[in-house]
Simulated assay, not measured.
Amino acid sequence: MDDDRRHRFEAVYAQTYEPILGYALRRCDSPEDAADAVAETFAIAWRHVDALPPHAEARLWLYGIARNVLANQRRGQVRRWSRSVELNTDIADLYSHSPEGSVELGAIAQAFKELHEDDRELLSLVAWEGLDHAQLAKVLDCSRNAVRIRLHRARKRLSKALAGAGVSVNRLPVESRSTTTG
């Protein structure tokens, strides 16, 4: 590998390591799993350094790679993870003696967990990563219009799940109800 490509990769790595690590940490059960996903993401990027997009688009490209790495990781852990979530929910129900706000947060978390994985991922990319429609389109490798439709539907399903859990959507912060047109 020539020095220019190596230096370019090193610069992208330095600029994107923390956002990619944060992305992985928010989606993994443990820091170790996140570290594995990040390592695999950058290993793939290293092998495909010639495909590395310029400037800020590199971060979005890496989110796409990380998303695929995490999906592969998840497929191997689905059974263990679902049992763990059920156990954690049962334990929380047994031992929670919290005020109404905490109960509502628990209901929100449970409604979110019950969404389809694709909806959770899309809503997480907006809420946690702060991506707009154009950026989401790059990460998900689809059109902005498809992102707008998917996001609208995911938000509707979340609102329905929240209503089913007895959570008033009108009481949530305005940011969580906004419709980004980005």
Rank of each mutant, 00 (worst) to 15 (best):
109 A>E: 11
99 P>T: 00
13 Y>P: 04
86 E>Y: 02
106 G>L: 09
30 S>T: 15
53 P>C: 06
72 N>Y: 04
122 L>W: 01
47 R>H: 06
131 L>Q: 04
120 R>A: 03
129 E>F: 01
45 A>N: 03
30 S>D: 10
130 G>L: 04
103 V>T: 07
17 Y>R: 14
26 R>A: 07
46 W>T: 06
21 L>N: 08
65 I>M: 07
15 Q>C: 08
53 P>N: 06
96 S>A: 05
40 E>A: 12
12 V>L: 07
67 R>S: 07
42 F>L: 04
102 S>F: 08
17 Y>L: 15
77 Q>N: 11
77 Q>S: 12
80 R>T: 09
64 G>F: 03
6 R>T: 13
65 I>Q: 10
131 L>I: 02
21 L>Y: 05
23 Y>M: 14
117 E>R: 15
90 D>Y: 11
13 Y>F: 15
106 G>A: 11
40 E>I: 04
14 A>Q: 13
30 S>M: 07
121 E>N: 04
132 D>R: 15
123 L>E: 09
27 R>E: 00
29 D>V: 08
117 E>M: 10
27 R>C: 00
41 T>R: 02
36 D>F: 00
21 L>E: 07
35 A>V: 00
117 E>K: 13
26 R>C: 00
127 A>G: 02
56 A>G: 12
63 Y>H: 13
83 R>W: 05
37 A>Y: 00
105 L>Y: 00
133 H>E: 14
73 Q>W: 13
32 E>Y: 05
111 A>M: 09
13 Y>R: 11
43 A>Q: 05
132 D>K: 13
122 L>A: 06
109 A>F: 08
9 F>M: 10
36 D>Y: 01
109 A>L: 12
17 Y>G: 06
99 P>F: 00
56 A>E: 13
91 I>L: 15
94 L>H: 08
13 Y>S: 07
24 A>Q: 02
81 W>Q: 14
91 I>T: 13
54 P>R: 02
58 A>R: 12
40 E>V: 09
87 L>K: 10
8 R>D: 12
29 D>E: 14
21 L>T: 09
130 G>H: 06
4 D>H: 10
18 E>V: 12
39 A>S: 09
124 S>Y: 06
80 R>Q: 13
98 S>D: 01
72 N>C: 04
114 E>N: 13
118 D>T: 11
40 E>S: 11
39 A>Q: 12
37 A>Q: 02
86 E>D: 06
69 V>F: 01
10 E>N: 08
124 S>G: 15
109 A>K: 08
65 I>F: 04
28 C>P: 09
